[in-house]
Computed example of a mutant assay.
Amino acid sequence: MKRIMLLIGTNLAIMLVLGIVSTLTGAHKFFSGSGLDLGKLLFFALLMGFGGSFISLWLSKTIAKWSTGARVIDTPANSTELWLIDTVRRFAEKAGLPMPEVAIYEGEPNAFATGASRNSSLVAVSTGLLQSMTRSEAEAVIAHEVAHIANGDMVTLTLIQGVVNTFVIFIARVIGWLVDSALRKGGDEPSGPGIGYTITVVVCDILFGILASIIVMYFSRQREFRADAGAAQLMGSPRPMAAALRRLGGMEAGELPQNVATAGINGRPGWMALFSSHPPIEERIAVLESRS
């Protein structure tokens, strides 16, 4: 990958930082004289899990612009930019959405949608896509991105991420406490977590975080099918979206940073598909054609 795959990468980084800092600074309010207070631990896990997830969502649009170098089109500089804004506006109105910000960025064929809510969204399209696709195919891709916004996919994935974050934090700290207790067996009563707890929690946060990303990626792939169907509805037919996917299948889709990949148009083959935010293009085409 030229650039690492907005939501998942940013969230993982935030969760690792929050988890390590809370561990190293001794923020263990869920420990008591009798051991581990599971109720307090669950509250801590919920606060950290959903906090990290929603911080990621809040930062998503800003990070997307920065990481891709996307330039928001305030005043169209040429006919292509005017067409792009008019196309996004037409689909947004059809989907009952406020007008998203529209941006363009240099790169290979790709596009993405992001933002904290339907009222604060961004649709960005690469120069490579605009240059390589017919207008009908490019319209289908734009319709797909608008459908992501209309379906509330960023918020949905944020909630899913919050749930898996909570489990990661909770389970990692339970295992950390068990390992620490085993290491101290026969010794003095612990007054708090020891080095065994700290090391175990950091390792588990990383390993379980990777497993959690597989779960989130699965739900992301399901949202892609919905966005494809939404594009077909906005276009009045599934054929333009299928044609756009065929075109993408014959070219190297530009890879997006992790924080925007969940709302882009690319995918990955082989076992790496477990970590892919998108289903195989062939499968997406087949599902679209079954709707014809």
Results as ranks from 00 to 15, higher is better:
residue 2 K to P: 09
residue 3 R to M: 10
residue 4 I to W: 05
residue 6 L to A: 06
residue 8 I to C: 01
residue 9 G to S: 09
residue 13 A to F: 04
residue 17 V to L: 12
residue 20 I to H: 02
residue 23 T to H: 02
residue 24 L to D: 01
residue 24 L to K: 00
residue 32 S to W: 05
residue 34 S to P: 05
residue 34 S to G: 06
residue 37 D to K: 09
residue 38 L to G: 03
residue 39 G to E: 05
residue 41 L to G: 01
residue 41 L to H: 00
residue 44 F to M: 06
residue 45 A to E: 00
residue 45 A to N: 00
residue 48 M to W: 13
residue 49 G to T: 02
residue 50 F to R: 04
residue 51 G to E: 00
residue 52 G to D: 01
residue 55 I to H: 14
residue 56 S to K: 00
residue 61 K to W: 07
residue 63 I to H: 03
residue 68 T to P: 07
residue 69 G to E: 08
residue 71 R to A: 13
residue 76 P to R: 00
residue 81 E to H: 05
residue 82 L to A: 13
residue 83 W to F: 08
residue 84 L to G: 08
residue 85 I to P: 01
residue 85 I to Q: 12
residue 91 F to I: 12
residue 92 A to I: 07
residue 94 K to H: 07
residue 99 M to F: 11
residue 100 P to D: 11
residue 100 P to M: 15
residue 102 V to A: 02
residue 103 A to N: 01
residue 105 Y to S: 10
residue 111 A to G: 15
residue 113 A to P: 04
residue 117 S to R: 06
residue 119 N to S: 11
residue 121 S to C: 02
residue 128 G to P: 04
residue 133 M to Q: 10
residue 133 M to T: 05
residue 138 A to D: 06
residue 139 E to M: 15
residue 139 E to G: 11
residue 141 V to M: 15
residue 142 I to P: 10
residue 142 I to R: 08
residue 144 H to S: 13
residue 145 E to A: 04
residue 149 I to T: 06
residue 152 G to Q: 03
residue 154 M to Y: 02
residue 155 V to F: 13
residue 156 T to G: 10
residue 157 L to K: 15
residue 157 L to G: 13
residue 161 Q to D: 06
residue 162 G to R: 00
residue 163 V to M: 15
residue 166 T to F: 14
residue 170 F to K: 10
residue 172 A to N: 05
residue 174 V to K: 11
residue 174 V to D: 08
residue 175 I to D: 04
residue 178 L to A: 13
residue 178 L to D: 08
residue 178 L to S: 07
residue 179 V to H: 09
residue 182 A to D: 06
residue 182 A to T: 09
residue 184 R to P: 01
residue 184 R to G: 04
residue 185 K to I: 11
residue 186 G to D: 04
residue 187 G to W: 05
residue 187 G to R: 07
residue 192 G to C: 12
residue 192 G to V: 14
residue 193 P to T: 06
residue 194 G to E: 09
residue 194 G to V: 02
residue 195 I to S: 07
residue 198 T to F: 13
residue 199 I to Q: 08
residue 203 V to L: 14
residue 203 V to H: 03
residue 210 I to C: 04
residue 212 A to G: 00
residue 214 I to C: 08
residue 214 I to H: 04
residue 214 I to N: 08
residue 215 I to T: 04
residue 217 M to D: 12
residue 217 M to E: 15
residue 222 Q to I: 02
residue 223 R to K: 12
residue 223 R to Q: 12
residue 235 M to E: 14
residue 236 G to T: 10
residue 237 S to H: 01
residue 239 R to Y: 11
residue 244 A to P: 14
residue 247 R to E: 12
residue 247 R to M: 11
residue 247 R to H: 14
residue 248 L to Y: 15
residue 253 A to H: 09
residue 257 P to L: 03
residue 257 P to N: 12
residue 261 A to W: 12
residue 264 G to T: 05
residue 265 I to G: 14
residue 267 G to L: 04
residue 269 P to V: 05
residue 271 W to R: 09
residue 274 L to I: 14
residue 274 L to H: 14
residue 274 L to K: 14
residue 277 S to T: 09
residue 279 P to T: 02
residue 281 I to T: 14
residue 288 L to E: 00
residue 288 L to G: 01
residue 289 E to V: 03
residue 292 S to L: 08
